[in-house]
């Protein structure tokens, strides 16, 4: 049988495809069939987790520090010591930077410089999720804007999309900068984007987020779709604002303002 080069190549190509298909078809079936994945029994469940920050209860530097430290310690958030490479999940900033455009020059000085606790807003309509090209950041059923750091390619599109500056990129290996690693939680690696997860690993065990636990009642956490939840009660009783709500991302973190001169509970 004689064959010209073109036919030979066609045949070779076909047989390669055939071999590939044969390999795929001949693979053993899924032996894991009998096994299943269940939600943890103790799991705190919600449709949309939300947080209310009662800024009136943050008075001393210590009040902020204990909340921030609680989170950063258990999540192995590195302290890189410079603003360029900085990684942070929860931090504080003054009113005029937390709510740019809302400040006025005549507002009480105390309020203008009041520090606000800032973290990922776990938006109901998150732009970071919309732009991620690999679904590495995604919205969970309980409303948490989560990220799969095994999948992140480090394109940083989510950082450009987030209007709240909530995301940090690992510009260098964070491991050496975690002073006392928590052996129950991973660190991160070079080149992935990370942020607050509303402590999903604690919720799975029936625990409140670490910052909420450390806040002594200054942070209130719960399911915002549940009319009986504490967050809903607090939201019904207090005037609250959200960061940049005009952008339509529907942030799930609310702030009760300190109203100087008022009785604080109005």
């Amino acid at each position: 049988m004689s064959m010209d080069r073109r036919d030979f190549l066609k045949l070779a190509g076909l047989s390669t495809v055939g071999m590939g298909a044969g390999w795929v078809l001949s693979r053993p079936g899924d032996i894991l069939e009998a096994s299943q994945f269940l939600q943890t029994k103790e799991l705190l469940n919600a449709k949309q987790w939300a947080m209310v920050v009662d800024i009136r209860k943050f008075k001393t530097v210590e009040d902020y520090k204990k909340v921030i430290d609680a989170c950063h310690k258990i999540h192995n958030v590195p302290d890189l010591g410079n603003p360029k490479d900085e990684v942070k999940w929860i931090w504080s900033d003054s009113f005029d930077h937390a709510f740019p455009g809302q400040e006025s020059e005549y507002m009480p000085e105390e309020m203008k410089h009041k520090q606000f606790v800032l973290l990922c807003n776990h938006c109901e309509n998150p732009p970071c999720v919309r732009v991620c090209p690999t679904k590495a950041t995604f919205k969970r059923k309980d409303g948490i804007t989560m990220q799969d750091l095994h999948r992140c390619i480090g394109c940083r599109y989510c950082m450009a999309a987030c209007p709240f500056g909530a995301r940090s990129f690992n510009y260098r290996d964070p491991r050496p900068f975690v002073k006392e690693p928590n052996a129950e939680y991973p660190t991160r690696m070079i080149g992935v984007v990370e942020k607050c997860t509303f402590c999903e690993e604690r919720l799975a065990k029936g625990l409140m987020p670490a910052c909420v636990e450390a806040s002594n009642g200054a942070l209130i956490f719960g399911d915002i779709t549940d009319t009986n939840s504490e967050v809903r009660k607090v939201l019904a009783d207090n005037y609250t604002i959200r960061r940049k709500s005009e952008l339509g991302t529907r942030p799930s973190v609310y702030y009760i303002l300190d109203i100087p001169g008022g009785d604080g509970n109005a």
Partner: peptide
Amino acid sequence: RDSAIREGKRTYINS
């Protein structure tokens, strides 16, 4: 990994 992170299901029932 996918079950825990992506679906929030953290319990595995073995065979």
